[in-house]
């Protein structure tokens, strides 16, 4: 098994795909962090200004304690995990497309071990991408946010943890979809279209129909809930008293509208990932390699 893991890892490092996707991942994560950091900074600057002071007093909140940056961190992580998902999506689709899957299966004791080795390697890559994303996002946020709005060490660790976890899960989700689709272009298009457009459209419809709780069950909603719920909990824990009506709005800002607690969101997305991953595994296990 160690041999196969080594072999699978070499496969990923001997082509340019990993850094070809790592560069846009880091740039996107950094860029989003800079941007969202700046936006939330201006929001909290406004809340801290004299005009808003009355409002703040009225609401009995202290904006200087608001860790607005956590929303930026959550949002940036969500966007950047698109790339590890694509990386995972190409894992099996590329091998089938390039026909290297033939030699892969000829040099492995059986398909189960070959695919298990692939799984281990892509979990590792999901973590590597996740760490790169969290690091880029943290630097970007730190550059543009007020120091007061940054989370404390514990909060940052919690966000970093769910960030890496969601990157791993997104990678595995991609692996599964890619194994089912077996087409490089098809996998990429379907993953991007669904995650960026289709589900966002669905979420809008659900939210407007007053059914936001369903969003938390959808793949993108669930994975966003993983980071978004942690972000909004962190924010609420430090923001003092926040009116009930505002909580929903804050969760929407965090990208976790309708999402459940972070662990429940994580479990829901894990179920989606397992569904596609095991489906893809089963398809590859039985596939005639011609």
């Amino acid at each position: 098994m160690g041999n196969l893991i080594k072999s699978e890892f070499r496969k990923t490092t001997t082509t340019g795909l990993w850094w070809g996707l790592m560069i846009p991942t880091v740039l996107l994560a950094f860029g989003w962090a800079l941007g969202t950091g700046a936006i939330f900074k201006s929001v909290s600057d406004f809340m801290g200004s004299s005009e808003a002071e009355e409002l703040a007093t009225l609401l009995n909140v202290d904006p200087s304690q608001w860790q607005m940056s956590v929303f930026g961190i959550a949002r940036s992580i969500n966007v950047a995990t698109i790339f590890p998902m694509i990386f995972g999506g190409l894992a099996i689709a590329n091998e089938i497309n390039r026909k290297t899957i033939t030699t892969t299966f000829l040099t492995a004791p059986n398909r189960v071990s070959a695919l298990a080795a692939k799984m281990v390697v892509y979990i590792l890559w999901g973590a590597i991408f996740g760490i790169a994303i969290v690091a880029s996002v943290s630097i970007g946020i730190a550059l543009t946010s007020n120091s007061g709005s940054l989370p404390d060490a514990g909060g940052w660790l919690a966000l970093a943890g769910v960030g890496v976890l969601s990157s791993i899960l997104m990678t595995m989700f991609g692996v599964g979809v890619g194994a089912l689709m077996t087409s490089v272009i098809g996998t990429t298009v379907v993953l991007l279209l669904y995650m960026l457009i289709v589900e966002n459209g669905l979420q809008l419809v659900l939210a407007s129909q007053g059914l936001p709780e369903i969003i938390g069950f959808l793949p993108n909603g669930a994975v966003n809930g993983l980071t978004g719920s942690v972000a909004s909990s962190l924010f609420l824990a430090n923001a003092g008293v926040v009116p009930e009506d505002m909580v929903e709005g804050l969760r929407a800002i965090a990208g976790a509208l309708g999402a459940f607690d972070w662990w429940l969101s994580g479990l829901i997305f894990l179920a989606w990932t397992a569904l596609f991953f095991l489906g893809g595994w089963a398809a590859t296990q039985r596939k005639d390699i011609t």
Binding site: R10, K11, T14, R98, T100
Partner: peptide
């Protein structure tokens, strides 16, 4: 073969396996 992988790397991948 993966077109972007060198012959030696291709062989090393499977040598490892």
């Amino acid at each position: 073969f993966h077109p972007k992988r060198t012959a030696r790397n291709h062989l090393r991948v499977y040598a490892a396996a």
